[in-house]
Design a protein around this nucleic acid. Structure first.
Length: 225
DNA sequence: GCCCAGGAGCCCG
DNA sequence: CGGGCTCATGGG
């Protein structure tokens, strides 16, 4: 039975099609990198979406833009309490307002160009040193903003992979990431798509209460009933 | 009303 | 090093 990570990817891609995530689905064909504005917005989005549905994040991003707060300068100059009001819809708004201020300072210190040109290990370590940026947020920023070939692990990824039997329930973030990465070609566009497909699959079928009967992965899943 | 969202920091053994 | 707690709003 071929239940490698790439095989799972192929099944999901065939079933759901390209997800066109974050953002600008065709960027890979049109351009080599994003604009600074796009990168910055992705970084803000990565903070706001921590443990939060994206629909709630969109409202918060919209409010930030409406109040001209979607720039590094504006985040630095606007009071934290004010930002907290703007991003209220994304939840944890006080925490996230503080994190936006910290990230803005970080982006003031290190320019987007400087970060873009770092090698992956250096960039990841630097991002992780920022309070409020953990492993998933760091990897999301690297993958979606800086287009580095790094695989983002999230709760969905771990749920699906552990149910299938490709990792154990208590495997760490880095372990699962290494396992997937070592079994797939390092390719930014594929990593981007794969992560989006896992999210889609988890929402539709591999939920907390899984819908195993109709799941397209049931043939390769250990947890099939 | 309950459950869950594209987590991370902190504290504690 | 790993488990438990906290942070908070909106949609199903």
């Amino acid at each position: 039975m071929n239940s490698s990570f790439f095989h799972i990817y192929a099944i999901l891609l065939k079933e759901y099609g390209p997800q066109g995530w974050w953002p600008i689905g065709t960027v890979y064909r049109k351009r080599l990198s994003l604009t600074n504005d796009e990168k910055f917005e992705i970084i803000v989005g990565a903070i706001l979406t921590q443990n939060t549905a994206w629909t709630n994040v969109e409202k918060a991003l919209h409010e930030l833009r409406r109040n001209n707060c979607l720039t590094i300068k504006a985040l630095l100059e606007t009071k934290q309490e004010t930002l907290a009001q703007y991003i209220k819809s994304s939840g944890y708004n006080n925490q996230k307002a503080e994190r936006l201020k910290i990230v803005a300072q970080f982006l003031f210190q290190y320019s987007l160009e400087e970060l873009q040109n770092m090698d992956m290990k250096e960039l990841r370590a630097l991002l992780l040193s920022v309070k409020g940026i953990g492993p998933e947020t760091a990897d999301s920023i690297m993958l979606y903003a800086f287009m580095k070939p790094i695989f983002v692990i999230d709760a969905y990824t771990k749920r699906i992979m552990s149910r299938i039997g490709l990792c154990s329930k208590d495997s760490s973030y880095d372990e699962l990431q290494a396992a997937i990465t070592h079994n797939m070609e390092k390719d930014t566009e594929n990593y981007n798509e794969y992560h989006a497909l896992l999210v889609e699959h988890a929402k539709r079928y591999c939920r907390t209460k899984p819908l195993c009967e109709e799941c397209v992965l049931k043939e390769v899943c250990m947890k099939r009933m």
